[in-house]
Simulated assay, not measured.
Amino acid sequence: MNGPTPPGADRTHSRPNPRHADCARRWVPSPFIAGAAALHAGAAAALIAQPATWPWAVGSVAASHLALTAAGLWPRSALLGPNWTRLPAASAASVTSVPGADRRLALTIDDGPDPEITPRVLDLLDEYGAHATFFCIGERARQHPKWIEAIVARGHAVENHSQRHRHTFSVSGPGALRREIEAAQRTLTDISGTRPRFFRAPAGLRNPFLEPVLCALGLQLASWTRRGFDTRERDPQIVTRRLLTGLAPRDILLLHDANSARDALGQPVVLAVLPQVLRAAAEAHYHWITLRAALDAAPVTPVGHGGNAAPFGKIRP
């Protein structure tokens, strides 16, 4: 584990990499999307050639829409496009030159900043010398800009979690998605001084229009490997077990600094869970890394959803 980063020293951005320039990416439809498009075209062609086949045509199109919807409701799915559910493997040079490159974890913290909880989360991260990725909501950032500045000053990364975190995000069209994400890009860039490079959908839910928008804005979708459901589970021990049982190198963990559930004493669950997670990771000699640092350490073409790593084993709080 690394020691605490001095105030104002942003180690997250200390390794610029021209391979991952912040620019638009070319959108390439996933095989799942391409297959759905081909099915639609085939159904239309069949309907024109043989109108009597309309029940088959309508049924097949309806089935494809159901499949596309199901893929969007599965946060860890890569069916609709590249999606980080684990950290990509580090390049050979990184493994050789960076101690602990093969023992990396990513802690992601969503929905903030929160003026009550975010400062306490930052203090806990400092205590353990850990770095995290904060997926922040644009409107909250405008309300509490000093905590965005504090996140960056303490060596963490600020990424895009939409401007308003609306529950209707996953049923929005491409224009609405772009406006929502672009507004958050402007907001978070203005306050943090650094352009977000990752996006996480509200509740992880999305639709086929999202990936082309992210490509146009130069953003990479990221979800998680494991989550504790700390926005609704009030028992910190249950949340902690969900995060630590079977923890493996390159896992991405999800917690929340806003919208955290409260325990029996009325305290935010995240504040009881986070020290246990950080302590267990330190004892297992894991190294916390931000997503953007992992992107810079990846091979030239980052893997969309990580890959497989042998589990370290069962770690208990």
Rank of each mutant, 00 (worst) to 15 (best):
A150T: 09
H285F: 07
R195N: 00
A130W: 07
S14C: 05
A62H: 00
A62E: 01
P212T: 04
G59S: 08
L79W: 10
N2S: 13
R232S: 09
L205F: 14
F229A: 08
F135E: 10
N160G: 03
A93F: 01
R120F: 02
L219P: 04
H65D: 12
H13Y: 14
G173H: 09
V58Q: 03
V270N: 03
A24D: 07
G246L: 06
L278Q: 10
T96I: 07
R178Q: 14
A101H: 03
Y286D: 11
A294K: 00
G155F: 01
L247E: 05
A24S: 15
P311I: 02
R19F: 11
G155T: 00
S97I: 10
A106D: 09
P236A: 01
I109G: 00
N160Y: 03
L39E: 11
H165T: 00
A24W: 08
R179S: 14
I252C: 05
L255N: 00
H65R: 14
R166C: 10
L243F: 01
I181S: 06
A132S: 12
W147S: 09
T290W: 06
W54D: 02
A157R: 08
F135R: 08
L247C: 05
T290K: 06
V98N: 13
T225S: 15
R186E: 10
T225I: 01
P7R: 04
L295Q: 14
A222C: 15
L271K: 06
K146M: 11
T245R: 14
A310F: 11
S60Y: 05
T187H: 06
L87E: 10
A41S: 10
W147L: 15
P16M: 04
V152E: 06
G266D: 03
P82W: 10
Y286R: 11
G129Y: 12
F198V: 07
P55A: 00
V213P: 07
G42C: 12
R206P: 02
E149A: 14
S97A: 14
T133R: 03
D10L: 07
A37D: 13
T118V: 04
R166N: 11
H156N: 15
R227W: 09
D126Q: 12
A222H: 07
V303M: 09
G306D: 02
L205H: 14
